[in-house]
Amino acid sequence: MAVLHAWRAARVTPLGELHTPPRMTAVLVRLAVQVVLVASLWHGLYSHTSTTAGLDEGQAVTYAVLAVLASRLRELDQYAGRDTVLQHMHFGTIVYWYLRPLPPQRYYALRALGEQLYGLAWALGGFAVCLAAGVVEPPRSAAVAGVFAVSLLLGQWVLYYVMLVLDQMCFFTIRNNSAMLILIFVQNLLSGVYAPLWYFPDWFITLSGFLPFQATLSVPLSIYVGRIQLADAGVQLAVQAAWVVVLALFTRWVWRQAARRVISQGG
């Protein structure tokens, strides 16, 4: 029953952002600068070639700009809001997560959902502006747009679990700063935020195939720009769904272990 009203806990982070206009201005400026720089960089890289790694200039710029916009989906400043799991463990306020009729795992999921929807609004706004300005190409067909949307949804779901695993680490290690720094780099590299995975050597692409990161962003963006054809998209969607299932089971098990640790480290 609790979930009937408790879903409104999803508004926690967006509300915090809306109450902090300077943070929103900073995001706007950063996104604008990043998009301009990334688009310029990729235009420059393609000035002496037409196709590289199976991508032409339009595809590469579209991929890179969409990656910048999509990275905004889960990149809120929770640290400033003292609302990271790390901080709750540090300040001992994590106990309140266990004192409410809404289980901590459900609260975490609702909060993340709110964040991702809020981030999606930013990403869609940025996409609309970039599309209107001709910085990115539109999807090649309605079918591509539809499959991309499904893949992006699955990718965000995978990303949610990857972030959750990191946060769950705090229950066992107290701090996750180093892991977070490593993950941000690995996530950005292996998901294709820094550069499309198609530019990397074969062994690297093979290796990343065994990890969940490319499922978060590289797959949906590759579908969007046409680097993964619709005929091959089914397999990719299945892999993404498999990661969702595996990570869901794993994180569920970790939540149970974490509940036993909350006192000794958070109490």
Partner: peptide
């Protein structure tokens, strides 16, 4: 429950 100075309120919200 109230645990000393540990607040259960959301830092960024009124």
């Amino acid at each position: 429950a109230v645990f000393g100075q540990r607040t259960q309120l959301w830092w960024d919200l009124p």
